[in-house]
Amino acid sequence: MTMLPPEPTKKLGLVIDLDICVGCHACAVNCKEWNTGGYGNALSDQDAYGSEPSGAWLNRIHSFEAVPMDAQGTPQPSDARIVHFPKSCLHCDDAPCVTVCPTGASYKRAEDGIVLVNEDHCIGCGLCAWSCAYGAREMDRASGVMKKCTLCVDRIYNENLPVEDREPACVKSCPANARHFGDLADPSSDVSVMVASRGGFDLMPEQGNKPVNKYLPPRTKTSRCASQTRDDEVPDLVSLAQNNQSTGILGWLDRTLDAIS
């Protein structure tokens, strides 16, 4: 059913915090592990122990190096930083991957906005992957069907799992708590509040896909002083010798000891 549903009243998605992601790949591997035995076909691997190993993954971690500039716009390579960047399907509101699908295998769920592939109908034409600007869909080479993040639809509602585990595998496993799951249509949800307060943003808004998943920006960092306002208030240490010419450190020591005893 490749017509997009009317805008869902519930939009489940992820919020990913680039300020804390350490690029450990835990979410990506755990995702693969949960999903290879879960929803639809296995996430196969080719040439697994050979010279060109590859496989289908629903979540991948990229890292970027960003070079800041000073007020004049001059690049400051010595202050370059690495930003780790996890990426999985963003469950777009205007998901082109859904509308291009010729078979109806791709669809967006009306009840929660999750974008899924019905693997029994998918012909593996690859068009949906082409239409996704984010590279969120990967063909499984063994089964010839398109795989993508299911938002762990087989976990989040799964009555065979304890209630506290009904969250995506990647969210549960992330050791740095950089991934958050919730309803982004509800402005009072934790994730929405987080997005609002931290300036959460869309990836490639110019593509017009209206992604549901949001990213939180890394906080400003410099190699000198950091973000915290506290630093601005911290005065330079003044040497005791300068402070008190007559007694110096020994005088200070005496006074301190007097105060203790």
């Binding site: 680039l18 790949h25 990506a28 060109e52 190993p53 590859s54 496989g55 289908a56 993954w57 991948r60 971690i61 990229h62 890292s63 970027f64 190096e65 960003a66 070079v67 800041p68 500039m69 716009g73 001059t74 690049p75 400051q76 690495i82 930003v83 960047f85 990426k87 992957a129 984010y134 990967e138 063909m139 080479r141 943003f201 869309d202 990836l203 490639m204 808004p205 110019e206 990213y215 920006p217 890394p218």
Partner: peptide, 23 residues
């Protein structure tokens, strides 16, 4: 825009998610 890392003088891929080719 792809990463949201705006305001830098340059943003360059540092490491691919996987070293070999993927789909």
């Amino acid at each position: 825009t792809a990463t949201g890392l705006t305001g830098f003088s340059s943003v360059k891929l540092f490491e691919k998610p996987h070293m070999t080719q993927n789909y």
